[in-house]
């Protein structure tokens, strides 16, 4: 995984609450056995008109939004299905961070695993960002992972929470499985002491 430190990117707004992962990517795109083609399915219901042509009114399709890498989204973004295809599709499309007042738990964890930053901000900052984007569709924000800060267009820096371990992994480009594999000795002693006898090979 590529290390992430600081990046600046154009922000695009999707100010809807409770955007579920079926909207991020519908189930019909989930029949792949790899990660290919998912970006085409991103927000497909909103992005395309019934005849398959791009919907000119959808935020991501506006010319000013071209190249956006930060999505500013409403509360409880990523609720519903646990499909990791949702963050894969967002990252595949070119997003590096999502900013929202809060994320659904599973989406948040999935996004962190693949280096798509879920940035939680307070309501005031969220609304401030929305008005910046409304005034200037070319608005860019800076996300400084090391400092755990979002820097808004006016220069105001807002801290965001992220668990230390996920941050450490992202900053250094390490993935979490490596750490888990190092716990082998502890896992063995745990298993030796566990009273559970289940065996799925009946």
């Amino acid at each position: 995984m590529e290390p992430i430190t600081t990046f600046a990117g154009k922000a695009v707004a999707l100010p809807l609450d409770n955007v579920d992962t079926d909207q991020v990517i519908p189930a019909k795109y989930l029949k792949v056995t790899d990660k290919s083609g998912l970006a085409e399915g991103l927000f497909t219901v909103w992005r395309y008109l019934p005849d398959g042509t791009p919907n000119p009114d959808f935020a991501l399709n506006r010319p000013e939004a071209a190249g956006a890498s930060v999505l500013v989204a409403g509360r409880n973004f990523g609720c519903g299905s646990s499909r990791e295809h949702a963050p894969w599709a967002l990252a595949g499309y070119g997003f590096k961070a999502i900013i929202s007042p809060y994320f659904a738990d599973i989406f948040r964890g999935n996004a962190l695993k693949i280096g798509l930053l879920p940035v939680t901000v307070d309501e005031e900052t969220y609304h401030e960002l929305l008005s910046h984007i409304e005034e200037d569709p070319e608005t860019s924000v800076t996300i400084d992972l090391a400092a755990q800060q979002v820097i808004l267009p006016g220069g105001r820096a807002v801290a965001f929470p992220i668990d230390n371990f996920a941050r450490h992994c992202l900053l250094n480009g390490i993935d979490q499985l490596g750490f888990l594999m190092q716990q082998d000795e502890d896992v063995r002693s745990y298993e030796a002491a566990s009273p559970i006898t289940l065996n799925t090979h009946l």
Binding site: R83, H85, D105, N110, L177, L180
Partner: peptide, 23 residues
């Protein structure tokens, strides 16, 4: 019992464990 993403499916397959913060 809870749902996990595909990266975590890999974690459990390989290590039978997950990294979790206490909810």
């Amino acid at each position: 019992a809870f749902g996990i993403g595909t990266s975590e499916v890999g974690h459990v397959l390989a290590s039978q464990c997950l990294l979790q913060s206490r909810p």
